[in-house]
Design a binder for these strands. Structure first.
Lengths: 122, 122
DNA sequence: CTGCATCCGAATGGATACTG
DNA sequence: CAGTATCCATTCGGATGCAG
């Protein structure tokens, strides 16, 4: 497990990015998905989440740590190394995230069609 | 079906109100729940959602209509009467909302405990 | 490398008052 | 009744630069 995260994991072209779901902060759900396969380092998370500035990412991570969704482990090394991993609580979110993803894939066409129909009639 | 909506349906004291989930706009999920049992009028929705100003509520409703989640039907009467109801697409969101609610009730204690532990150690 | 500090613009959401 | 108009406070997220 724990293959490298792909840069296009959350590509803006991917319609799920504009889906009407949100868990916690704007990026929480994506972080959960990134950590699904094991611990990740800060810089590693920045690969798929390259539209997130470090400030916002660290804010997101800290609030997730506060809520007990992730663990933060800082190795006492130089250069510094920090790993984030899902807690059982955070892992339990995966089913919900998957449910949301299923809904998106199932109903995305409807949603796009609805928006088009709406703008046409306007 | 369609008994009156209770004012305390989304009481701030209810912990699910601060849960880390969001569907669409801030109030979308609550509107979906309000419409679960049938069509509702604008003022009717304002009862449980009394913390939402009319401006924000109408914005929410319009964006939900745009996304094909609800239907808006305006009777040609005076005084005016408008009813909102879930489309099949909007109704399909109910399973997701329920999943989110289940997660909340199942893990709320963990979440509260995590926050307390965090603030204690800080 | 992993973040924190500071500044800033945009967007969100709310209060209040008013209209057809 | 069902909104709209206007104004405003707060928040959010991004850019940049710096520190351990």
């Amino acid at each position: 497990m724990s293959a490298g995260l792909k840069p296009d994991m959350f590509d803006p072209a991917c319609p799920t990015t504009v889906m009407p779901f949100q868990i916690g902060d704007k990026w929480t759900a994506m972080v959960v998905l990134c950590l699904e396969d094991g611990p990740r380092r800060f810089t590693e998370l920045r690969v798929p989440l390259r539209r997130v500035t470090p400030k916002v990412l660290s804010e997101t991570l800290r609030s997730m740590e506060r809520d007990g969704l992730i663990n933060r482990f800082a190795y006492d090394e130089n250069p510094p190394r920090v790993e984030y991993s899902l807690t059982p609580l955070g892992r339990s979110l995966l089913t919900l995230v998957d449910a949301a993803r299923s809904w998106c894939t199932d109903h995305m066409d409807d949603l796009v069609a609805a928006r088009e129909a709406y703008t046409r009639s306007a």
